[in-house]
Amino acid sequence: MSSAEKSPWILHYNASSCNGCDIEILAALTPLYDVERFGIINTGNPAHADIFVVTGSVNEQNKEVLKNLYDQIPEPKVVVAVGICAASGGVFRDCYNVSGGIATIIPVDAYVPGCSVRPEALIEGVVKAIGVLEKKRALFDNGGAK
């Protein structure tokens, strides 16, 4: 188990979520769930982040923002799509301005189902993502630093 697994820092982005999932993400930081146990920190800054946690679906306005934030996260990085909207667009899928889940813009490594998600599911999703992050780091290290 390397340090990548022990210190996953999160960037949380609300693409066009109804705030339901977002409130659950913040709930995970509270004493009851305390994700800092796993070394997880909600950084709010792509330059510091390892895990990109996105809620909500993608629309025309936030496409570019999503792409930008993803690009600004240094390798190795993983993306977690939180909630049904982030997975597929959810109930908003057929809206004229919604292009679907975030996988239409950036590669997703873990999906957390739910509307809204439960903190336990969220934590499990992030832990799954940490496993992917670990593999990516091994690949990245072998590929040599860019």
Partner: peptide, 9 residues
């Protein structure tokens, strides 16, 4: 990296 301004391009 491009400079950070809340994800704007």
């Amino acid at each position: 990296l491009s400079p950070y301004l809340s994800g704007r391009g």
